[in-house]
Each structure stands twice: as structure tokens, then as C-alpha cells.
Amino acid sequence: METEQDSGDVTRAHSLAREIFAGVANKWALLIINVLGARTLRFTELRDEIEGISHKMLTQTLRGLERDGVVHRTVHATVPPRVEYRLTGAGAELLATVNGMCAWTRRHLDGIEAARRRFDARDG
């Protein structure tokens, strides 16, 4: 039986925390959160800003983020329907972490590239 404490432990195989972590800690979710930032965007605007994401993957990722309360979806009753996405309060809080990860990547990009070259040369 899983306890409330277990459900919040990302190291537990079947914990809710691990499920949520997996949903927000993938490249597409991180990119969507980063692109939305403090803006509200339509589906096509999001797709245009995230190079390489398919329609299907964007749809699946947005649904997961909406389910977890990270993204809010608004459908406007127009013809054709207009759908917009924005970060929720929880999503905006997560944005600070995502921005920190982006900043870390930029700061360490040269070192990571050098480490990869050394590693690849060693195994080549």
C-alpha cells in the first residue's frame, strides 16, 4: 500500500511524483513551458516556435501539461474555434526552474561540447 509520503517520492517506481516529474521533465514539455513564458499563444503559434515538434506530439504534451495543472487551455466560441494556451500559477512557478536550466545550459555549453568530444574520441 502506497502511503501519502510515498506518492510524493520521485524515487518510488509507482509514485504520483515520479509520474508528474516524467510529464514535465521531457524536452517537449520544457520547450512548451519556456515558449509560453508569460504569454498566451494559440496552438499554431506554439508549433511555429518549437522547431521539430509534430502536431501529434504538441497535442499530447499540451494535454498532459493541462492534466497536471501546468497549462490552461481556453476555447473561444468562434468559427472556427480559437484555442489558446497559457501557463497556470504552477506553470509560471515551474518556468523559473526551466529558465534556470536554460541558463545553466548556455553557461556550460562549451564545456559540455568539449566533454562530449573527449568522450567520443575515447570510445571511437
Rank of each mutant, 00 (worst) to 15 (best):
M1Q: 08
E2I: 12
T3M: 02
T3P: 01
E4T: 08
E4V: 11
Q5Y: 09
D6C: 03
V10R: 01
T11H: 00
T11W: 01
R12Q: 13
R12I: 15
R12E: 14
A13K: 10
A13M: 01
H14R: 12
S15C: 00
S15K: 00
L16C: 07
L16K: 10
L16D: 05
A17V: 05
A17P: 03
R18Q: 04
E19N: 02
E19T: 10
F21L: 13
G23R: 13
G23A: 11
V24C: 06
V24I: 15
A25G: 05
A25L: 09
N26R: 08
K27S: 14
K27G: 15
W28E: 13
W28Y: 15
A29H: 02
A29G: 09
L30G: 12
L30D: 01
L31R: 14
I32K: 07
I32E: 09
I32M: 09
N34R: 15
V35E: 09
L36G: 08
G37M: 06
R42W: 08
F43S: 01
T44V: 12
D48K: 03
E49C: 02
I50N: 04
I50H: 04
E51I: 08
I53D: 09
K56A: 01
K56Q: 08
L58W: 06
L58Q: 03
T59P: 01
T59G: 00
T61K: 05
L65H: 02
E66S: 10
E66K: 12
E66T: 12
R67C: 10
V70W: 03
H72D: 03
H72V: 04
H72N: 06
R73F: 07
T74D: 04
T74L: 06
V75C: 10
H76K: 15
A77Y: 12
A77M: 12
V79S: 08
P81N: 09
P81W: 07
R82A: 13
V83W: 09
E84M: 06
E84G: 08
R86Q: 10
L87F: 05
G89H: 00
G89V: 07
G91P: 01
G91W: 09
A92W: 06
L94Y: 04
A96C: 01
A96F: 03
T97I: 15
T97E: 12
N99R: 14
G100K: 00
G100N: 07
A103F: 02
W104A: 15
T105S: 10
R106S: 14
R106H: 12
R107F: 04
R107G: 06
L109F: 01
L109S: 07
D110K: 11
E113T: 05
E113D: 07
A114Q: 14
A115D: 14
R118A: 11
F119S: 15
D120Q: 14
D120L: 15
A121N: 12
A121D: 15
A121T: 13
A121V: 10
A121S: 14
D123Q: 15
D123I: 15
D123R: 15
G124K: 11
